[in-house]
Simulated assay, not measured.
Amino acid sequence: MSHADSPDRVRALSLTPVSRETEGRLDIIVALLEKWQRTINLVAPATLPQVWTRHVADSLQLLPLAGAARRWVDLGSGGGFPGLVVAAALAERGDADVTLVESDSRKAAFLREAARLADLPVTVLPARIEQVSGAIAAGVEVVSARALAPLPRLLELAVPFLAAGATGLFLKGQDVDNELTQASKSWRIDAEIKASLTDGGGHVLIVRAAERLGAASSGGREFSQGGHHDG
């Protein structure tokens, strides 16, 4: 059976349909991932047989939540999820600009090679997030992350982008409510939780604003503490 006919790929693309051109770019990314995975742990080995649903479709589900956004920063991109996948989908728009921040030099090398082979609108920054966030935050429309850090720490990393007007799209697991509870002890958060399309226990956390408690006034913006809005 070819990859194109695999049940995992078919299911993933039925959950999150994309153009034929985007499918081609995603095929290149997945093939390279499987090749590099033999020497670098880019994804959990047990998830590789379901790479399309567990990783590709999981990433693609963020696109409808981002509206017309074209300037995107992905934090701790690792094996390229969601950053490479987002870039593959945005590539046909013509003016997309996706920055992947990854401090592991071997993973950064994979990201660069995947972006080159698939002809993606990607810049890879092989640096720690704290070192570059202030310099690249202006004009970013979406900041994303997947399996990077618990929410209190993730907000610390993402706040330069959120403060500059970006929306946060964070792929989270079943403990998202507990993470919001912990984060709300030190942050005022305007957030919404959506159920994952691909993972029964997963969620997408949409963060529209976050402000450290005790910081300067938000200027009248109304904050909500992460209510559910699945659907």
Rank of each mutant, 00 (worst) to 15 (best):
L84S: 01
A210T: 11
S14V: 01
L180N: 06
G80E: 02
D199H: 14
A115F: 07
R116G: 11
G94A: 08
V204E: 05
A209H: 06
L63T: 03
V140L: 00
G134R: 10
V207T: 03
E141L: 01
A210K: 09
T167A: 07
A215G: 15
L180A: 12
A91L: 08
S103I: 04
R208A: 04
D230Q: 12
A158Q: 12
L180E: 07
D175W: 08
G67L: 06
R11Q: 12
K172Y: 05
L157R: 10
A115Q: 02
T16G: 03
A191C: 15
E156S: 14
A216E: 14
R71L: 10
E21C: 03
A135Q: 14
A88R: 06
A216D: 13
H55R: 07
R128V: 11
S105D: 11
F81V: 02
A89Y: 02
Q50M: 09
P45D: 09
A158K: 09
R25G: 13
G94L: 08
D95A: 15
G226C: 09
V132M: 10
A96P: 04
S133N: 12
A164W: 04
A118K: 10
A166V: 02
N178Q: 15
W52F: 07
A114L: 05
L75W: 01
G76Y: 03
G168K: 03
A108E: 04
P150Q: 11
S59E: 02
V30E: 06
Q50R: 15
R38T: 12
V10A: 12
R112G: 05
L155I: 15
A216P: 04
L162F: 06
E92A: 14
Q182L: 14
V10K: 12
L151I: 08
D8N: 08
G173A: 13
L148P: 09
F170Q: 00
E179S: 09
V10Q: 14
S217K: 12
Q61W: 03
A137Q: 11
A215N: 12
V101M: 04
A89K: 00
Q131T: 14
G79R: 04
V18E: 07
R208F: 06
G83N: 01
A137T: 05
R20Y: 00
P160T: 11
T39P: 00
R106T: 02
E21K: 15
T181L: 15
H3S: 15
G231C: 06
E141Y: 01
L120K: 03
V30G: 08
L33I: 14
R116F: 13
E92M: 00
R153T: 15
Q50V: 03
G220S: 12
V143N: 02
